[in-house]
Design a protein around this nucleic acid. Structure first.
Lengths: 106, 106
DNA sequence: GGGATACTTCCAAAATTTTCGAAATACCCA
DNA sequence: TGGGTATTTCGAAAATTTTGGAAGTATCCC
């Protein structure tokens, strides 16, 4: 994963409203949740919610599927796994090796 | 973890420069990295880096320790673990149970 | 004390984000 | 075709973020 992409995804999750939306979708699982259901729970303007959803979708964290007049939103779990992996990745690889001491031979 | 706190941390990581800083610190491990070393690698103004570091520190993702005239920065690993846990947490708990079908008795 | 290095805080301009009403679009049903 | 529900796009104001030069603070060394 590229830093730019990860940053975009983290930025998308870094807004309280979008994070709530995302968590609702994560909790909802494979059934997903309609845009209208999200709006009912959040109590914000439809256009505001639509903008937030758009950003989550642009980053690949959320997917939408139309069912007649309603749009079902779902968390994209593999994308979340990739992002979590990116953050935890390569922990300490540049650290001084455990046995190393000043003046010690390589 | 509260949604507000998690959102602040994600927002802090959601900027390419700050994410790079954070990853450098994660890679650096327990030794950490001086502010000046970060600046050398990033090539940005010292004041800009200082602002970014301040945000990472405010959210609790990064800690600083003074060693003489230099400030050593370190990733706060427990904070990262808590954030990752928050995101993965409660996946699918609201989902329709696997055996559920329309009209099925509870 | 004087002077050097390391880093932060102050200030401010430019860019971006957040918000939502109004208008537009998508789809279904009769 | 006409009308209704669901959702997005347009447009724009207010708030926040990002950036860095200049000035300030902290610590060390002589």
């Amino acid at each position: 994963m590229k830093v730019e992409k990860a940053a975009k995804q983290l930025e998308a999750l870094g807004n309280p409203t979008r994070l709530q939306v995302y968590r609702m979708l994560v909790r909802a699982g494979k059934d997903g949740l309609a845009v209208g259901r999200l709006q009912d729970r959040l109590g914000i303007a439809a256009s505001t919610l639509s903008h937030h959803l758009h950003r989550l979708i642009l980053t690949g964290l959320v997917r939408q599927e139309r069912q007649a007049t309603t749009l079902i939103c779902r968390a994209n779990y593999p994308a979340m796994d990739a992002l979590l992996g990116f953050l935890a990745d390569e922990c300490c690889v540049d650290a001084t090796p455990a046995g190393a001491r000043a003046g010690e031979a390589a």
